[in-house]
Write a protein that binds this DNA or RNA. Structure first.
Lengths: 354, 354
DNA sequence: TATTATAATGTAAACGTTTACATAAGCATT
DNA sequence: AATGCTTATGTAAACGTTTACATTATAATA
């Protein structure tokens, strides 16, 4: 069927060892034979088989990435960061998705096993057991935004606490003393951390810390809308609102504008995540940008280090930095719009232009 | 190092063949031995090695996808379609990116070779030679939106012609007789096809076909802006504008609104690609949606067929259907906004909620 | 009881590489 | 001329599986 190293060896009148040496340009092969072998390789259009090679050298020179989904801008950004960094380290990338489904996660782990030298896993509800059961202990693994308490895996998490802290501190620096929060759902780890950051910023900034200022939301636009309506009904309303995510801040904005209240003059707004829409609404919304790309970059760097150092590698928990993006809604001037290269249109054209 | 089938065999006092049979639950193994082997497998936490397996059975049960980039909503959508369909067919997915770079494309092809049973390639400037040189003739390949004239590869392309034709016909159905086009760059295949569709629709719809109505653009927002300004300066202006992509239609909208002209009352607008922003601007913009997801689905289906049928498989060129999405800018009522699940925010939360 | 069919298991080759080791040839050194 | 060193090449084992074929044990048949 396919042309193998044996065919080349036979045709060039050498042993397969010599052919292999030529291919991996080992320097101990005579110029003459080298030429002859290369000639035959071209002639037969021989292409080495990676499976055989990997099996032999016990390396695949590829790393794996398992995501809950491959869909949407967030995961796309992760993939991009991972891809670029992997390529930079001369590693190839293998992507798989789990759809946050127990069965599929196991299938993904099993499929990827043996095909990669290391693995990055991003999944909300993966547990250490599942990983242990489906991956050899020897395979380097980095967990991305997984909520595992276990210290037996290296892990990276978004610094929700610090992001919220920074954003709220920024609001305080605008002179706000009474800042409400629209919280995320209970038992959500991100939400809890963001709340914690909010509270600490109030304490440190000597602003009003009061449970009355805390409203419950569930990360949905609707819950943000409801929370803002509730605030506006009160006798005294806060001078600023920090929502635990952007969806809720958008909902809140609707409610506030409906009530004829001016943003940011009468009430300032800030969110979290920096989703694309926040820069298109009016006024543009201040938010905390999660450097998703960097998430991927860091993950790969940790992983490669783990692969290289093997048992010497020290596992740790890393917090990925975030960045406050001030816009009109907190009282800052509107920054320039992001470049257009992000849009589908341009991508299609980029991919089809010669 | 790692536990292999031999370790299991030794421990269970059977041959590796028997262990293999148990693992692939061949039915010709006695219940007793089966139990014993399974016991040992659990005990040693044995995990079969995929490389060895694939090498032996000459199948990997994976397909590859090579994209120009892994970044952004467009490719993300492609990946999603491919991923889902592959999973449906019990194939795993391996993704790699080329960055539209000659060297990287070759590296990607070489790396993926042997690791997959079939390959989907999406790249603007790949040529048949490169593929031939780096992939065995026996590997099934499907080309996605590549401009290759060669018939030796199965290929899928977006139906630019029909999309433009449909959109312009839609404008005509609104009563427009004088419809301008802002063309894409010359020598761009997509642009040419969209222009062709525009002209044919005018012919068939008995609307005014006149080179004076055709303005040159380069797919950029700025070029759309310029083209619209030029139109507005003329004595008689068209009653509708069809831009060859959405970026340009957004630029045109700016120019038109600056001039104080009403959309769609005084001039109607339509674009191509259906990028996310078009539904957020005011008025929302009618566009042609490229079913990117379907692109991926179709590609996988073709590929799997090619893998299954091998030499019996008949290569062809397929055009992927597109869909007109009427919105306010062409005079249609505003359709409901797309659900919010597409945004980064929700994805983060979805991926971290338990 | 001898023969044959069936079922369970083992043996070994195969998949396509790499590489430690062996071999052989050439050459310089004594 | 014998020895050792270098260099080029070959041999064969190894990587971890699957599987055709061989072997053995067991049951069914005459």
């Amino acid at each position: 069927m396919s042309i193998t190293i044996k065919d080349v060896a036979k045709r060039a009148n050498v042993s397969i060892a010599t052919v292999s040496r030529v291919l991996n340009n080992s320097n101990i092969v005579e110029e003459d034979t080298k030429k002859r072998v290369q000639e035959v390789v071209r002639e037969l259009m021989y292409l080495p088989n990676n499976l055989g090679r990997s099996l032999s050298i016990k390396r695949t020179e590829a790393i794996g990435l398992i995501l809950p989904d491959l869909f949407g801008e967030f995961f796309s950004e992760v993939i991009r960061g991972v891809d670029q960094t992997a390529q930079h380290h001369k590693y190839h990338l293998l992507v798989s998705s789990s759809h946050d489904d127990r069965k599929e996660i196991e299938a993904a782990l099993q499929m990827i096993r043996g095909r990669v030298d290391g693995l990055i896993i991003m999944s909300a509800d993966i547990d250490v057991q599942t990983i242990n059961k489906n991956l050899p202990k020897s395979l380097p693994v980095v967990l991305l935004n997984c909520q595992v308490d276990d210290t037996s895996y290296d892990s990276l998490n978004i610094n929700n606490y610090y992001g919220a802290y920074q954003m709220v501190s920024h609001l305080i620096s605008h002179g706000h003393k009474s800042i409400s929060i629209i919280k995320g759902p209970v038992n959500n780890h991100d939400a809890e951390e963001r709340l914690r950051g909010y509270r600490q910023a109030l304490r440190d900034g000597k602003a009003q810390l009061d449970f009355k200022l805390e409203y419950l939301g569930d990360f949905s636009e609707a819950s943000g809308y409801d929370a803002a309506r509730a605030m506006l009904k009160k006798k005294t309303r806060p001078s600023a609102i920090f929502a635990a995510n952007d969806s809720m801040v958008i909902g809140a904005l609707s409610a506030i504008q409906e009530a004829g209240v001016q943003v940011p003059e009468e009430i300032a707004l800030a969110g979290f995540d920096d989703i694309p829409i926040v820069q298109f609404v009016k006024p543009s919304l201040s938010s905390v940008r999660v450097s998703i790309n960097e998430l991927g970059v860091l993950a790969v760097n940790r992983l490669i280090q783990a692969i290289r150092e093997r048992s010497k590698f020290i596992k740790q928990k890393t917090l990925v930095p975030v960045e406050v993006i001030p816009r009109e809604s907190c009282g800052c001037p509107k920054p320039p719009r992001i470049p257009f290269y992000r849009t589908i249109s341009n991508q299609i054209e980029m991919s089809t232009q010669r």
